[in-house]
């Protein structure tokens, strides 16, 4: 069995098992967890509207924080949109997703995908440099923040290398690319990358929490 056969076969199957097992475990575990009992007098009893609103208001910063957050917000968008384009609009990726989900849609030309990949990588590097240099970020970062950036960037980097046949033959690079995606699958449910699923419930919960206390946020 070649490295590529291993990556496309058993490694892919097991990484998907772990991805789905871990994701459901974490999602169900968190959502069914007992609600925090707040014995204080609520300033606002009906929090639903504020909760839903918070899910959306967090897409952009408040004008007051412009100076400190504009850069990272733009970089964040560049990274996320770039990654979404690469993952969801590269035709071989669509074929993979359609095998899992039965859904299918049109893709983009490869040079567009490569541009999106380059933007994604550049943004990830910018985020990492900021995390290393900014004193506040240094203080609140742990090893997992660095790992999450690395695990996200690796499939993009290896995918682009495979496309360009850099340093190695294509089958080997393709195998490394698939293995790096499998590493992402395995790590995804258990680390901070799970925010890709949890961002809606967490913003909703935060909105409810603030609303109950009468905080406008």
């Amino acid at each position: 069995m070649t490295l590529l056969d291993f990556a496309r076969g058993p490694a892919l199957a097991w990484s998907l098992y772990i991805l789905f097992f871990g994701s459901l475990l974490r999602l169900v575990g968190v959502l069914l967890a007992r609600k925090h009992v707040d014995l204080s007098q609520p300033r606002n009893a009906d929090t639903l509207g504020d909760s839903v609103r918070t899910v959306f208001t967090r897409f952009w910063f408040k004008p007051e924080f412009r100076a400190s957050t504009l850069f990272i917000t733009l970089i964040g968008y560049a990274m996320h949109i770039g990654l979404a384009v690469v993952v969801l609009l590269f035709v071989p990726h669509i074929l993979f997703i359609s095998k899992l989900s039965g859904l299918s849609w049109g893709g983009l030309p490869n040079d567009t995908i490569m541009l999106a990949g380059a933007i994604t990588l550049a943004a990830l590097v910018a985020m990492w440099v900021r995390r290393l240099q900014n004193p506040l970020m240094q203080a609140i970062s742990n090893w997992e923040d660095h790992l999450a950036l690395f695990i996200t960037g690796l499939p993009v980097l290896t995918g682009m290398m495979a496309y360009g046949h850099l340093f190695q033959d294509y089958p080997t690079l393709l195998a490394i690319h698939i293995l790096s995606v499998e590493l992402l699958f395995v790590w995804f449910p258990f680390g901070k990358l799970f925010h890709a699923v949890m961002w809606i419930p967490t913003r909703f919960k935060l909105g409810a929490h603030f609303s109950r206390r009468g905080v406008k946020a």
């Binding site: 199957a13 098992y17 994701s23 074929l95 899992l100 698939i178």
Partner: peptide, 20 residues
């Protein structure tokens, strides 16, 4: 080529079910 060689719909369902 990109679809992989696994045929694990049941396996994934089982893993998801076990996780839940």
């Amino acid at each position: 080529l990109s679809k992989g060689t696994f045929s694990s719909a049941e396996g994934i369902a089982l893993a998801a079910g076990a996780g839940a």
